[in-house]
Nucleic acid binder design. Structure first.
Length: 400
RNA sequence: GCCCGGAUGGUGUAGCGGUAACAUAGGGGACUGUGGAUCCCCUGUCUCGGGUUCGAAUCCCGAUCCGGGCCCCA
């Protein structure tokens, strides 16, 4: 037997119903903020992803050569492709540009809970403005989406890489290794590496920007962002220890966690970044975020969220010799826009009812010769068990 | 890349060295004018490969996949 590749998933009809629902819901909110959907290819030149992150990234990327020897990769994320698209096509468009996207990404990782080799990301990029209100609106939208879909328990943390780097400079501790340790929250190791650990500890535990003694211009901007967040009524936490893995992040960064998920609790991450110049475009401010679609769904499920059930089709059963008449009914009702399933197994009425029952179907139309003569069919309510004879025409008005 | 724990009909499980069991589901029939019942029939050989043994689902090794945890995380 051939099974699915490691770290990939098949989705059942029940799962797809949930996923579709969530996708639709998220899309609505992006649209509400004036973002427009775009889509980019599943495969890109490998270079697009190695540019900013170095060759080491290849190990986690599904990379391959095509028949002409081009080095390609399945996209491991969507920010770089979207920026590539922007540089190729949209540089002269009026700013700001607001794009959102939904797509599958691939990473060659050890699969575990909330982590797959093929996973889906919902995200957006805001191109052209880094005004405090622009960043505040972006963060608000991320928070709004997660709240709107029904998540109860989420935590938003906001940090600032410029401030963090400047501070580390001031204590002579700004290097990649230390950033990595901060990202990992490995305080034991940091204690060994940073001479002035006490000051560092004080810095990263700051909960209010007024506690900052330093005088960087970035602090003023961040204060403004926070002011606007309050205006948008978004609860936040200051967390100057957010380091984020990618080097192209600059300035304000944020993460949203669903604490219930444990180790893989981060469901959204984003911030300001600089990628356009690397891709050969004219420098312009960019910011964005990505939501882990699978993890978000998982978080909803773990909170016991009640998903709306998709309505069941009306089912058409027929007596012996009434197949063509059943087809007529199916055709008529589908033309009315109704969801219709007809017996395709040539089952007896009793088997048909049994089937409808197991499938949770609410209404069954029974096409029988005696009634057909009078221009009528039988309609049976599977919940109450009641059955009545009705005109074929009035079937169109049946509620499922 | 590392560490645990798993893998038995479609699904959920039992069996843990003597030649596969139970529940449930699916299809058909008893039953061509009516559902959740009953009865009968059909559908499954233990993830794969190698080893130990007279004999392996059972023990050992390896691979694959799944779950959990690290590392990493765009």
């Amino acid at each position: 037997m051939i099974s699915k590749p490691r770290g990939t998933r098949d989705f059942t009809p029940q799962e797809m119903q949930k996923r579709r629902w969530l996708e639709t819901k998220m899309r609505e909110i992006f649209e509400k903020y004036g973002y427009e959907e775009i889509s980019t290819p599943t495969i890109e030149h490998l270079e697009l992803f190695t540019l900013k992150s170095g060759e080491g990234i290849i190990e986690e990327t599904y990379a391959f050569e095509d028949k002409a020897g081009r080095k390609l990769a399945l996209r491991p994320e969507l920010t770089a492709p979207v920026m590539r698209f922007y540089v190729e096509k949209f540089q002269m468009e009026p700013k700001p540009l607001k794009f959102y996207y939904f797509g599958n990404c691939f990473r060659y990782d050890r699969p575990q809970k909330g982590r797959y080799r093929e996973f889906w990301q919902f995200g957006c990029e805001l191109i052209g403005s880094n005004k405090p209100e622009a960043i505040a609106e972006l963060i608000t939208m991320a928070y709004d989406i997660l709240k709107e879909i029904g998540l109860k328990n989420i935590v938003l943390r906001i940090g600032n890489l410029d401030i963090l780097r400047k501070f580390l400079d001031s204590i002579g501790a700004n290097d990649a290794e230390i950033m990595r340790l901060i990202d990992k929250k490995d305080f034991d190791e940091l204690k060994k590496k940073i001479r002035n650990f006490e000051e560092f500890e004080k810095f990263i535990n700051i909960k209010d920007l007024d506690e900052l003694k330093q005088d960087y211009k970035e602090i003023d901007k961040m204060k403004e962002v926070i002011e606007f967040l309050e205006e948008f009524s978004v609860p936040y936490n200051i967390d100057l220890s957010i380091a984020r893995g990618l080097e192209y992040y600059i300035g304000i960064v944020f993460e949203i966690d669903a604490p219930k998920l444990g180790a893989e609790k981060q469901i959204c991450g984003g911030g300001e970044y600089s990628l356009v110049p690397l891709l050969g475009g004219k420098s312009t401010p960019t910011a964005g975020f990505a939501i882990g679609f699978d993890r978000t769904l998982l978080a909803l499920e773990m909170e016991g969220f009640k998903f709306v059930e998709v309505e069941k089709p009306i089912y058409i059963a027929y007596m012996h010799g009434m197949l063509k008449e059943a087809i007529k009914i199916a055709k008529m009702l589908r033309k009315e826009g109704m969801k219709v399933e007809m017996d395709l197994m040539r089952r007896s009425i009793s088997k048909s009812l049994d089937y409808a029952n197991r499938k949770g179907i609410k209404k069954v139309v029974i096409v029988a010769p005696e009634e057909w003569e009078k221009g009528k069919v039988l309609i049976k309510d599977m919940v109450s068990g009641k059955q009545e004879e009705i005109d074929i025409e009035s079937l169109k008005n049946q509620k499922m």
